[in-house]
Amino acid sequence: MEENTAVQGASASVTHVTPLKRDATYDHRAQEAVLGIQVHHTDGRSTQSMLVLSPDQVELYAIQFEQLIAKRERARQAGR
Results as ranks from 00 to 15, higher is better:
residue 1 M to N: 14
residue 1 M to P: 09
residue 2 E to K: 14
residue 2 E to V: 11
residue 2 E to R: 15
residue 5 T to V: 15
residue 7 V to C: 12
residue 7 V to A: 14
residue 7 V to Y: 15
residue 10 A to L: 15
residue 11 S to F: 15
residue 11 S to Q: 12
residue 11 S to C: 08
residue 11 S to W: 14
residue 12 A to C: 05
residue 12 A to E: 06
residue 13 S to G: 09
residue 13 S to K: 11
residue 13 S to I: 08
residue 13 S to V: 09
residue 14 V to R: 02
residue 15 T to G: 01
residue 15 T to Y: 04
residue 16 H to D: 07
residue 16 H to Y: 09
residue 18 T to Q: 04
residue 18 T to A: 05
residue 18 T to S: 08
residue 19 P to Y: 00
residue 21 K to H: 03
residue 24 A to M: 02
residue 24 A to T: 00
residue 25 T to A: 04
residue 26 Y to N: 02
residue 26 Y to M: 04
residue 26 Y to Q: 04
residue 27 D to I: 05
residue 27 D to H: 01
residue 29 R to T: 15
residue 29 R to P: 04
residue 30 A to H: 01
residue 34 V to R: 02
residue 35 L to T: 04
residue 36 G to D: 06
residue 36 G to E: 06
residue 37 I to F: 00
residue 37 I to V: 13
residue 37 I to D: 01
residue 39 V to C: 01
residue 39 V to R: 06
residue 40 H to T: 07
residue 41 H to D: 07
residue 41 H to C: 01
residue 42 T to V: 12
residue 43 D to P: 07
residue 43 D to H: 07
residue 44 G to R: 03
residue 45 R to G: 06
residue 45 R to P: 03
residue 45 R to F: 01
residue 46 S to K: 06
residue 47 T to G: 05
residue 47 T to F: 05
residue 48 Q to R: 10
residue 48 Q to G: 02
residue 49 S to P: 00
residue 50 M to K: 13
residue 50 M to V: 10
residue 50 M to L: 08
residue 51 L to T: 08
residue 51 L to N: 06
residue 51 L to F: 03
residue 52 V to N: 13
residue 52 V to G: 09
residue 52 V to A: 10
residue 53 L to M: 14
residue 53 L to V: 08
residue 53 L to P: 05
residue 54 S to Q: 12
residue 54 S to M: 04
residue 55 P to F: 01
residue 56 D to C: 05
residue 56 D to Y: 00
residue 56 D to T: 13
residue 57 Q to K: 11
residue 58 V to D: 11
residue 59 E to Q: 13
residue 61 Y to V: 08
residue 61 Y to A: 06
residue 61 Y to W: 02
residue 62 A to Y: 00
residue 62 A to E: 13
residue 65 F to T: 10
residue 66 E to L: 05
residue 66 E to M: 07
residue 68 L to C: 04
residue 68 L to F: 00
residue 68 L to N: 08
residue 68 L to S: 07
residue 69 I to M: 05
residue 70 A to C: 03
residue 70 A to N: 09
residue 72 R to P: 00
residue 72 R to T: 09
residue 73 E to Y: 05
residue 73 E to T: 08
residue 74 R to A: 13
residue 74 R to S: 11
residue 76 R to H: 10
residue 76 R to Y: 07
residue 77 Q to N: 13
residue 78 A to R: 11
residue 79 G to S: 12
residue 79 G to H: 06
residue 80 R to H: 10
residue 80 R to V: 11
